[in-house]
Design a protein around this nucleic acid. Structure first.
Length: 573
RNA sequence: GAGCGCGUAGCUCAGCCGGUAGAGCAUCUGACUUUUAAUCAGAGGGUCCUGGGUUCGAGUCCCAGCGCGCUCACCA
């Protein structure tokens, strides 16, 4: 059931002229309902359960939900709405997917409806049931409001019967629409009806010899045995080819809105004509652009390129993915790892701006659409205590932090964050905490491989050795190991080495030379594998004196270089 | 062949109903009680693909062209 809306009259007023694309779409729908006089708006999204739900499925449901919400606000929630997630699970299994166990089991059911194919994972009644369950799990996890419908159930229960008989009734009209779109050889065998073989259970792609309209049956022949069959088009004994199927479903269910990828433009057109031939009206909708992988290719389940939902959620938040789907649905967009940080940060920025915006601006703000009009309060941090105006810690800032902190431990990162903003913790800022964890993952997978450790030369090695010795004096606890005292010692060690002396530095005297930046660069490059780094005294204080000495020892022994090479090799494998 | 999209700063891209070109990154300069950055302030940087049209006025609207990319044409 859809949640009630809090409807501010000013908001409804602003919605009438809002230009965000979900409103443009919703307005088409308002016009349509005025025309048809229908008392309900039905939204549909389609899903083919021959594999797990992918990121495009998510996008379609997310975008359709945004249009639905815009529609509800536009109409003051005076017209009921429903969103149907339709699974085309009676489709025949064409080939065995690569990414599943028990392939032989599945191969034995080739050609049968997906709901008749055994579940290779052994957890559900069929392969389709398994994938359907995964789809629902995933839609539920995002909190989408939808009704699930299975093609198999619709066919068997008779929900489609009336529309199916209409297709039989207007068989010639449907063929007249379909045939010109097909090649000559396909025209010979084409039929909108696919009877289920009464003996083998296979979805048959055969020419129809005869339509018996009074009986509601079709007559066809098994191409292998030559046996003739007469099959009812109703009751799940036959299904339709997908374009007529789509059209029939629109008519049978009364679908008012469905969007589709631009690869389906021609199909939408044909199905729309069929829907009209069946006496219905094709739904409103638009063609969104496809997602491209890093090389600009269309992402597809079969190729396995591009990003999966899980991969996105490893590094980016669900909200950032929703933002990606909101942005420019009509433009081709690269969907790859490197777009994630920007989406996360854009989301945070939009969220931060939201509270200060008026109704009109809010309706243009993606977070309004992403969160159905009720975005959460942003998690701000302030360096000057709780009463100071806060800012949002951005993902890119966290990524920098992880890189220079050289730590994969979220607790160490929180140490750095607290130094900047006292009083902030994973408990007070749980969403920031989830960002920290994701930043760590991003660091491990994309930043760490970019690190380049190098070996110290003799002078560098002896300076680092001395630094380690000096740090030892902090370990006993006789001196407080604060960021400042440690920093002071780092300078002293550098000052003792002629290579690092800098007489031009501000405040430098011949007795007490300044310390060149070279000393710090040595530390970052040798110890952290980074060209630049944090204030090192602060780093040691947080990272630990003992740990830092161990780090130096490993660097001097050449272990850091070796370990990083091994790490890179294991990644490549 | 048909359809869709894109072309704006070095890079990635915003740019609403036509009204003095914007952001992030990068670069440079400066601040932060010694140079370090997870910070802040500032600066430089553009033939808005080309040509025409509409207009008092076009990155924006219209037409033509050039360039780049994708999709469809067997199946879903």
């Amino acid at each position: 059931m859809s949640r009630p809306l809090s409807l501010d009259p000013a908001l409804i007023e602003a919605a009438q002229t809002a230009t965000a694309w979900p409103f443009e779409e919703a307005r088409k729908l308002v016009e349509r309902l005025k025309r048809t006089g229908k008392k309900e708006a039905l939204f549909e999204t389609g899903y083919g359960p021959s594999g797990l739900p992918h990121i495009g499925t998510f996008g379609e449901v997310a975008r359709t939900s945004m249009v639905r919400h815009a529609f509800r606000v536009l109409t003051g929630d005076s017209i009921p709405t429903r969103l149907v997630a339709f699974s085309d699970d009676m489709d025949g299994l064409r080939k065995v997917p690569d990414n599943i166990p028990n392939k032989e089991l599945v191969a034995s059911a080739l050609g049968k409806p997906l709901t008749q194919v055994p579940d290779p994972f052994g957890t559900h009644e069929s392969f389709a049931h398994h994938n359907n369950a995964r789809l629902r799990e995933f839609l539920d996890a995002f909190g989408f409001d939808y009704e699930f419908k299975s093609a198999t159930e619709c066919y068997r229960s008779g929900v489609f019967d009336k529309a199916l008989l209409t297709v039989l009734e207007r068989y010639e009209a449907v063929m007249a629409i379909m045939l010109p779109s097909l090649r000559e050889e396909r025209q010979q065998s084409y039929s909108p009806f696919l009877p289920i073989h009464p003996k083998t259970g296979i979805v048959m792609q055969v020419a129809i010899d005869e339509c018996k309209r009074e009986a509601g049956t079709i007559v066809w022949r098994d191409p292998d045995t030559g046996e003739r069959f007469e099959t009812p088009v109703t009751g799940g004994h036959a299904k339709l080819q997908w374009k007529p199927d789509w059209a029939m479903r629109w008519v049978a269910l009364g679908v008012d809105y469905e969007m589709a990828g631009k690869d389906l433009i021609d199909s939408v057109k044909l199905s729309g004509e069929i829907a009209k031939a069946l006496g219905g009206q094709p739904p409103e909708g638009f063609n969104y652009e496809l997602f491209l992988d890093e090389k600009g290719q269309k992402i597809s389940k079969s190729k396995g390129n591009g990003l999966t939902i899980d991969e996105w959620l490893t590094y980016g938040t669900p909200d950032s993915l929703a933002l990606f789907m909101f942005n420019k649905p009509r433009e081709a967009k690269k969907l790859y790892f490197d777009v994630i940080p920007r989406q996360v940060d854009d989301y945070l920025t939009f969220l931060e701006k939201y509270s200060a915006q008026d109704s009109k601006a809010r309706l243009m703000n993606p977070v309004w659409h992403i969160h159905s009009g009720e975005p959460p309060v942003p998690e701000l941090v302030s360096s000057g205590g709780a009463n100071q105006p806060g800012t949002t810690i951005s993902f890119s800032m966290l990524l920098n932090l992880v890189a220079v902190a050289n730590s994969e431990d979220p607790a160490v990162l929180w140490g750095f964050i607290r130094r900047y903003a006292p009083g902030v913790s994973p408990e007070t800022h749980p969403r920031l905490d989830s960002l920290v964890k994701r930043a760590v993952r991003y660091f491990e997978d994309f930043v760490k491989p970019q690190k380049t450790y190098r070996l110290p030369d003799e002078v560098e090695a002896s300076s680092l050795k001395r630094l380690s010795d000096v740090l030892a004096s902090f370990e006993s606890g006789e001196r407080p190991a604060t960021a400042e005292t440690i920093q002071e010692e780092i300078y002293n060690v550098g000052r003792a080495e002629p290579r690092y002396q800098d007489l031009k530095a501000k405040g430098a005297t011949p007795d007490r030379p300044g310390v060149s930046i070279e000393w710090f660069n040595t530390i970052y490059q040798v110890l952290l594998g980074e060209p630049r780094g944090p204030r090192f005294g602060s780093f040691v204080a947080l990272y630990g004196v003992k740990e830092t000495r161990a780090l130096i020892a490993k660097a001097l022994a050449g272990d850091l270089v070796r370990e990083h090479e091994a790490f890179l090799k294991s990644r490549a494998a």
